[in-house]
Design a protein around this nucleic acid. Structure first.
Length: 454
DNA sequence: TTTTGAGTTGTTCGA
DNA sequence: GTCGAACAACTCAAA
């Protein structure tokens, strides 16, 4: 009898350049692809109809891609810690292979699964595939991890990348759940039930093939060549729009980098954005407490306004009276995605102008972003609120009027998301100059007194 | 060990 | 309008 490996998909919903898949195929005669609809995904800390919708359809595409190669995706619903040992017993698997997960929930989940499998003599094998480089690879010469981006990037760039792997043309036929008709029932239920909160037509087409088509376009585009200057323009399509594809692993970041790297400021700058993604994932891996605490711990003592403050609702609904902030917030709500510049402006406004705890904004973004990633979102919010690793001056408070003039000079962005000036331009919630002074004072107090006083 | 230089994405002010 | 300096003090990285 041949050996069987379970290939457990999580956030690597692709067949191209998938080291876990290649490892499973190389190490066993039969491969059983499986996905677990974990309650945490559907009803966890940050439930998001947009992400669930995108994931479900990407899974549907993955199931079809597997079927076309002679394989079959089994979709289970429940707790991974219980289901995987059970499924392993059912198909007599000797190993479970995964792309390694780095965020706190995924780590805890994998520890439980690994332990329960090992009790039964089944190996749990973690492969790369979600990041360009592993946290253990990018370390300071003196030991320990980087806390500043630039030196991290220098070390990161100096490393050799693994080769890109082709998708297999054929896969062995699995035996799991055969004839029971339940292999996809859980997914079919989810496909029927899930509705995005955003306008479905504004969410990029799910699935690996669609993502690869986006990458093909992006790699050849003028926008990539002009990315260094063009990526900041809110009123132009100057960004890759690949974030949800990287979030769900429809594309591997190694392949994205391979296809887009090269000479020129645009390509260099795009590579550095991919590097930021690794940086924040590594940081959260090394310091899991950043998921709930500020990197600059003394700033957790700032008298932040809480989530139930009425100003927060105005921000969430795009009624702050600052058009570029409100446009970004409407874009988030209506499309499940926001231009990076818009994210920074909206985040700066919430934390600096309104003095609201960054975690309130982090949660709101996570509940709407199709590309919502715990590490990148957390890193971005800590950056914007000046509580993070970037030692940027706290007096850097985005001026929403200046930002609008500079990055939406045509006005197309604001017009797109705030079509009715009568209704969409309420008086400003706060005065910029005054809010700026107050924000600086708020931080100055904490910075001066330090973590152990007050 | 000590020292030195640097730190994604800004804003304001005054010349 | 454009430009450079100031905006705190500190931590981190590397020599």
């Amino acid at each position: 009898m041949g050996s069987t490996a379970i290939l457990w998909f999580r956030r690597d919903l692709r067949l191209g350049d998938n080291p876990a898949l290649a490892h499973a195929l190389a190490s066993a005669d039969t491969v059983e692809p499986v996905f677990v609809l974990d309650d945490n995904l559907l009803h966890g800390r940050w439930p998001s109809p947009n992400r669930v919708w995108f994931m479900a359809r990407s899974l549907h595409a993955l199931a079809a891609d597997l079927a076309a190669r002679g394989s079959r995706l089994t979709v289970l619903r429940g707790r991974p810690g219980e289901l995987l040992p059970q499924f392993a017993a059912e198909v007599a698997a000797s190993s479970v292979v995964v792309s390694r997960d780095y965020a706190p929930y995924g780590r805890r989940r994998d520890l439980v699964v690994a332990e329960r499998l090992q009790e039964r003599g089944i190996a749990f094998e973690r492969q790369p595939g979600v990041l360009v480089h592993e946290p253990e690879e990018v370390l300071r010469a003196e030991g320990g991890h980087f806390k500043v981006f630039s030196p991290f990037q220098r070390a990161w760039q100096a490393l050799d990348r693994r080769p890109v792997l082709a998708a297999p043309e054929r896969m062995p036929a699995p035996v799991g759940r055969q004839g029971r008709g339940s292999a996809r029932a859980a997914l079919d239920d989810l496909l029927r039930a899930s509705r995005p909160s955003a306008d479905e037509r504004l969410i990029p087409v799910p699935g690996e093939a669609a993502a690869r088509a986006r990458l093909d376009d992006w790699a050849e585009s003028d926008a990539l060549k002009q990315y260094d200057g063009g990526r900041d323009r809110l009123d132009r399509a100057g960004t890759s729009r690949l974030s949800q594809d990287l979030r769900w692993g429809l594309l591997s970041p190694v392949e994205v980098l391979e296809r887009t790297s090269g000479a020129g400021n645009g390509r260099q700058r795009f590579a550095s954005e991919i590097c930021w993604r690794d940086f924040y994932a590594h940081l959260l891996w090394h310091q899991a407490e950043l998921a709930t605490k500020s990197f600059r711990r003394e700033l957790d003592d700032v008298a932040w306004r809480r989530a139930d403050d009425p100003a927060v609702d105005a921000w969430r609904e795009g009624r702050t009276g600052y058009p570029v902030v409100d446009a970004a917030m409407r874009q988030l709500r209506e499309s499940g995605w926001v231009h990076n510049r818009g994210r920074m402006i909206a985040a700066s406004f919430l934390t600096k102008h309104l003095g609201v705890d960054w975690r309130v904004g982090e949660a709101h973004f996570m509940s709407h972003l199709t590309d919502g990633d715990p590490a990148s979102n957390n890193g971005g919010w800590q950056w914007a609120s000046s509580t993070g690793t970037d030692p940027q001056p706290y007096f850097r408070v985005f001026n929403p009027t200046l930002q609008r003039e500079r990055y939406d000079p045509s006005g197309d962005y604001v017009r797109r998301w705030l079509p009715d000036p009568e209704a969409d331009f309420p008086p400003p919630l706060v005065d910029h100059a005054e809010a700026r002074r107050e924000a600086i004072a708020r931080y100055e107090q904490r910075s001066r007194t330090g973590p152990h006083r007050g």
